[in-house]
């Protein structure tokens, strides 16, 4: 009990916030990591901030883990997008919205959003625009129609 108190006392001295959460990271090869976020927001503000930012915490946790692996010299595998992911990205590159992609490809909008999410993750992209740019530079997309 005493050690726990000391631990949190020291944590406070180093600016660790009084509230927080930890996101587990599951890597491709079974590698694991924990990503912690702390804050000094009030209980009420923290509860709403948590809801708002949870999605970003998940993305950030995985991103930082990938970067750490890279710095440690673990080369990441070359990106391979599935045909469906490429198709969605190709139409985004042509200026179509997710809804338009869904109509063109005969998929639901939700499915298109899922394929784009997966493509963004595989390309380490922060947005669809970013993903198109990375895919284009990597020569994954066809030339403009």
């Amino acid at each position: 009990m005493g050690r726990l108190k000391t631990f949190f006392g020291e944590a406070g001295e180093f600016g660790i916030g009084s509230r927080g959460l930890t996101v587990p990271v599951h890597g491709r090869l079974g590698d694991r990591a924990l990503f912690s976020v702390t804050s000094d927001l009030s209980a009420c503000d923290w509860a709403s901030a948590k809801l708002l930012y949870m999605r970003d915490f998940q993305v950030l946790a995985t991103h930082i883990h990938d970067r750490v692996l890279g710095i440690e010299g673990h080369a990441s595998e070359p990106v391979s997008l599935s045909p469906r992911e490429l198709e969605c990205l190709q139409w985004i590159a042509e200026g179509k919205t997710a809804w338009e992609c869904a109509v063109i490809l005969g998929l639901s909008q939700h499915t298109v959003r899922c394929y784009l999410e997966s493509a963004r993750h595989k390309l380490h992209a922060t947005s669809n625009t970013h993903a198109v740019s990375i895919a284009h530079r990597a020569g994954l997309l066809f030339d403009p129609l």
Partner: peptide, 12 residues
């Protein structure tokens, strides 16, 4: 079931 590769993301 998904021969071209499966979906992968921290949000899935």
């Amino acid at each position: 079931l998904m021969p071209g590769g499966t979906v992968e993301s921290p949000l899935i």
